[in-house]
């Protein structure tokens, strides 16, 4: 196995774990959402890396080219990116509402306030 080998996939895992770490260890809700975004992009890197063919060009048919990158991961990820930003908007909207209701976007402060209520 020559160098790039599985390198891309290991980087994917590193990125995914960084995102995961932000989501579980950080208390700020906005930061959590951006951590989730890193997690999401790591999955995109995984798909697009799998779609790469050695020596392949972009998947647009043209005379003179025989090897193309696999188009399927592109299709899946293209829509996932737009869906990702749409869901992120919903997440941020929820954070804004949480700020309205609790006056804080730190999860331990919110938990304390919720404890007071119940």
């Amino acid at each position: 196995m020559d160098f790039p080998g599985l390198f891309n996939y290991w980087i994917v895992i590193a990125l995914m774990m960084i995102g995961f770490y932000i989501v579980i260890s950080q208390g700020n809700l906005v930061k959590k959402i951006f951590g989730l975004n890193i997690f999401q992009v790591s999955v995109f890197v995984f798909y697009i890396s799998m779609g790469k063919v050695e020596g392949g060009t972009a998947p647009i048919l043209a005379p003179g080219f025989a090897t193309y990158t696999n188009p399927i991961p592109s299709v899946l990820i293209l829509t996932a990116i737009v869906v990702g930003v749409a869901t992120m908007a919903v997440g941020l909207a929820l954070v804004v509402r949480i700020r309205d209701a609790f006056g804080s976007i730190e999860d331990d402060e919110i938990a304390k306030l919720e404890g007071d209520v119940t």
Partner: peptide, 28 residues
């Protein structure tokens, strides 16, 4: 990696719209 359509989307969505939304929610 040869996924030009995806690059196109990422540049406009991830780097553009997501950043604007993030800034807006920080302000709010």
């Amino acid at each position: 990696l040869g996924a030009v359509d995806v690059a196109f989307t990422e540049a406009s969505v991830g780097a553009g719209i997501a950043t604007v939304l993030g800034l807006a929610s920080l302000a709010l």
